[in-house]
């Protein structure tokens, strides 16, 4: 899969420890927000970017109800490491797929 800028930057952020969560409101609004690791800020992520990375098997839901946080898969970690050259690895699923 050829990654575009938005997809690449999301993978790099997740590798660095930022957290991607689905936020819901009582009125049903659904937003994907990326939380900085040091809580210094939050940025919105387009649903299409999340969906494309999930369908490509690079990220997956933590499967916790009622609202998901997304984690890098083994494949996503490898892709992020290729992009950054960093060996830092956030804790996530291993040989689970």
């Amino acid at each position: 899969m050829r990654l575009n800028d938005a997809q690449r930057s999301l993978l790099v952020a997740l590798q660095a420890g930022d957290r991607l969560k689905v936020h819901r409101t009582l009125d049903g609004e659904k937003r994907y927000l990326l939380h900085r690791i040091d809580e210094s800020g939050v940025s919105a992520v387009a649903a299409a970017v999340v969906d494309s990375l999930e369908r490509s098997g690079l990220i997956e839901s933590n499967m916790k109800f009622p609202a998901a946080t997304f984690l890098l898969t083994d494949k996503g970690i490898a892709a992020a490491a290729k992009l950054t050259g960093s060996t830092q690895m956030p804790m996530g699923p291993r040989n689970f797929g």
């Binding site: 420890g17 969560k21 690791i37 916790k64 946080t69």
Partner: peptide
């Protein structure tokens, strides 16, 4: 608190745990 990484108890150093899960203490 709907997310596993929400801060839920006063006095806990959550920044340490965020760094821990990011692999910074590996």
């Amino acid at each position: 608190h709907r997310f596993p990484d929400d801060e839920k108890v006063k006095g806990v150093d959550y920044q340490f745990y965020r760094d821990l899960l990011a692999g910074k203490y590996d």
